[in-house]
Design a protein around this nucleic acid. Structure first.
Lengths: 231, 231
DNA sequence: TCTTGTCGTATTGTTGAACGATCCCCACAC
DNA sequence: GTGTGGGGATCGTTCAACAATACGACAAGA
């Protein structure tokens, strides 16, 4: 019995052994997120075998992992490409966000909003230092905290994937400052309202936030001629 | 331009070329859904190379595909196992369903409820013939139609995965008749209410439906001693 | 009896090379 | 300009091999 309790206590500590493919996928994920690999760019197998130091099969495995995360796009017999997010995707992403985040916040039973308020604070301090990518990640963490209030593992996973796509979409936007800056204080408002238990006003604010953010992104995309593939 | 329009017209018809791994995954998916591979059962690579007639790498690729669908569970250096769904999973699944289906139905803008009513009808006729697995799939299609009302590709994908897990959970239930039969007329009620535009009553009915179904499943699981792994 | 250490075996993880299949590009004929 | 091959590059798949790991059995010690 003692071993059982010990194992239970350590269950959260042990990190599962990661395969070579997962490690390679982590490298590629980083490269995509940092913009070293641009959307639409072709990612040839041959070019990555050396830099990553893995075999072709393992690399293909890594490709598959990232394709599942919608960071890469796999075309049969043609290879993999960095995913391009168009205006339609942005529209769909925000449609899902509205449908997930708002009810998650409205029906939340949690009392612990520490991660949410922390995300807001790191965002604010990062803004004063002008670290706008940091502001972006803080913003994402804020919204992940909202979804986390639902207390569902699967929903957290979904949100994780959505935010990865959103990050990809950010690359299509212009100046990150003008984009992120305007939402900083709105996040703060939402966070304080939720912490005070005023979920009704918090959810309405969240809704308008999502509407505005979507409008800004889709107009920016359409202006940049990235409306939709066959338009 | 002509090619573009033609491609657009045929876009729905052409089925993308499927790799050997995807075909193998389809076979395995079928076997899991039909219960030929039982939850928790180990699925050794060696045992499937011959029957599927593919190489080891391709088989491992198929494993990964199914692992991503949460039908298989991959344990490093130990192999893959048919996924076991416990009471905690059921709880989480229904938590997500509540948060997705109810708002999807409440905020639906669709006027076309044909797929939903069709699903209900096929369920009813299948019940008269005693084809209970068919009733189960019709039930699933009904709820997928609810989510489809949100009009989001990503949400449809999520729902598809959730239902796959639910199907897996059904294996843990006893008599499919007593389980599915009671929900047939409730689906019908919800469908008629939505078709008549009374979304308010439809959503309340859907909520109680989900509550009851969850209670029934979790109690059945706990009674069968499949509460949760380390309890 | 229970725990711990050791070892052999089976299975998985990863590699590298090979071959057929498919796509893309380009020269060529009409 | 349009259609038709061909060649090269890349991908899909297979195969064989070796390394790394887990599992079961068995023995030694408390």
């Amino acid at each position: 019995m003692r071993a059982g309790r010990l194992g239970e206590r350590l269950a959260g500590l042990v990190q599962p052994q990661r395969s070579a493919a997962e490690l390679a996928a982590a490298s590629l994920r980083e490269a995509i997120m940092l913009g070293e690999l641009l959307p639409g760019e072709r990612v040839a197998e041959e070019d990555l075998l050396r830099p990553l130091g893995i075999s072709r099969n393992t690399l293909r495995e890594a490709f598959r992992l990232l394709a599942h995360e919608k960071l890469l796009e796999h075309q049969f017999n043609r290879g993999v490409f960095v995913r391009t997010v168009d205006a339609n995707d942005v529209e769909d992403l925000f449609r899902v966000r509205r449908l997930i985040e708002v009810p998650a916040l409205a029906n939340s039973t949690t009392e612990d909003w520490s991660t949410m308020t922390e995300a807001v604070q790191t965002g604010l301090t990062a803004a004063t230092r002008g670290e706008w990518t940091e502001v972006g990640t803080a913003n994402i963490r804020f919204h992940q905290a909202i979804v986390a209030a639902a207390g569902s593992r699967r929903l957290d996973e979904l949100m994780c994937q959505l935010t990865a796509e959103l990050r990809l979409a950010f690359h299509g936007m212009g100046d990150p400052r003008t984009f992120h800056e305007s939402y900083l204080h709105r996040n703060n408002e939402i966070a304080t309202l939720t912490a005070n238990g005023d979920l009704a006003r918090a959810t309405t604010l969240l809704t308008t936030y999502l509407d505005d953010a979507e409008r800004e992104m889709t107009t920016a995309f359409r202006a940049a001629g990235r409306g939709c593939p066959q338009a």
